[in-house]
Every structure is written in C-alpha cells, then in structure tokens.
Computed example of a mutant assay.
Amino acid sequence: MKNKVIPNPILPAAGVRRNFAADGGAGPPPGGQHDDRTPNPQGRVQSDHSTPSNALLRCQRPFVMGTFNAFTVREEARLVELAHCAEERGVEILGIQEHRRVHTDDRIVYRRVERSTFITASAWRKEAQAATGGVGLMLGSLARKALRRVYHHTDRILIAEFSGNPITTVIVVYSPTNVAPPEEVEKFYEDLATAV
C-alpha cells in the first residue's frame, strides 16, 4: 500500500515561505527587516468600553511596599518623619503596626501628612490607660488614587483594597507577642484566617 500524503494546513506548500503562508503575508517584509514599522507596538489597544485605570500594580514600573513596627507615632514630629522617609525611598504602601494613636469616635481615621495619607484603626488602652497597639497604612499619592476601600476587621487587622485587575488587597496586622495569653493568640489567628 502506498503512503498517502496528507497536507498539513499549518505548514506552507512547497516553495512558499512560511511567513507568507501563515496569514497571507503578515510577516517581515522582503529582506527580513522591519525598517518602517515596529513588529510589536507599545501598550495595548483599549476596548471601546474601557476607561483610564488607576490600577496600583502595572508591569512598566516598579512598586515598593513595606511594613514598619513604629512602636509609637503619637507625636506629630515622628509621623512627619515617617512620611518623609517613606516618600524619599519611594514606598507607596507602608503597613504600620503599633502606632498607639487612640481615636474612640471613629473606627478608621484618614489624615493627610506631608504628601502622604495616613489611615489608622484605633489603638486600645491597657488597664493603666496606656495606649498600645494599632494598625495603619501610610499611602503615597499613587496608592491613594488607587484606593477603593479600607475596612476594620478587628483591632489588630486592617484591610485595604486597591484598583487593579485583579484587585490588590493589603492586610496589615499587629500580632500578639509571645507573652500574650494563648486564647488571645488563637483568637488572632482565627480572625486572620477569616480575613484572608
């Protein structure tokens, strides 16, 4: 029995260059050079229904996030110094633990510091009325524009969502220390599991 040759629709016929056979001549021009046009134009073509995005994360630029256990930023000078250092180093999102700022009226407080935005969930008071704990975020201008919402999960957990595809979620936590009662530690990790 003779071998029957079945033509492959993907491969070009004999004598036809592969680039022209693939899609009717959409390959490099004769000579193989792209002198007049770019083979891969920069950026994407936006659809008819798209709008400019405030997306936080983009492939074309670096993005810096960090965390900082402040021990305290109750004094205004410390808060201003922290905002200045974050801006100087290009940190867009800085998660802050143990800021020790108590605000009983509101669960979350937004505050402008220099060119940054400082968002805090209230610290709490110990038996001796000393402030302790508290979580917050220091946001640069790009992160502030991309911010969708912030919510207070517990006194130790603050969650922020930023525009993007997919949405970027940042969770700032202040975990109990190693001398905390075991039930407090267990409760914290249960709360963190539900937040995630």
Rank of each mutant, 00 (worst) to 15 (best):
E161N: 15
T132V: 15
I167G: 01
L94Y: 08
A77N: 12
E98D: 07
L139P: 01
R101A: 12
R125D: 03
N165P: 08
R58Q: 14
C59S: 14
G95R: 01
P52C: 06
F68V: 08
L79H: 04
V73T: 14
H153P: 03
R74W: 09
T72G: 04
A146F: 01
V102H: 05
R125G: 10
H152C: 03
E76M: 14
R89Q: 12
E81S: 15
G136M: 04
W124M: 12
H49E: 15
I171N: 09
P166F: 01
T51S: 13
I159L: 08
H99V: 01
A123Q: 04
I96M: 09
R61W: 04
T72E: 03
G140A: 05
I157E: 00
E183L: 12
A143Q: 14
G133Q: 03
T169S: 10
R156Q: 11
R149Y: 12
A83Y: 02
S47E: 10
P166N: 03
P52H: 11
S53R: 12
I157H: 00
F162D: 10
V135F: 01
A86H: 06
H99N: 05
H99Q: 05
I108S: 08
E88W: 02
V91F: 08
E184Q: 13
I96L: 15
A83R: 07
A143V: 12
E98Q: 07
P52L: 09
L142E: 08
A83K: 02
Y174D: 08
V172N: 11
T132L: 12
R89L: 09
P62C: 14
Q42P: 07
N165T: 13
P52K: 14
H152P: 00
F118A: 09
A77E: 10
N178I: 00
F162C: 07
T168A: 09
L142Y: 03
A86T: 06
H49Q: 13
I108K: 06
Y110L: 05
R101K: 10
L142A: 13
C85S: 04
E81K: 14
A180W: 00
V173F: 02
P52F: 10
T67F: 02
A143D: 11
T169H: 01
K145G: 06
Q129K: 15
Q46L: 15
S141N: 10
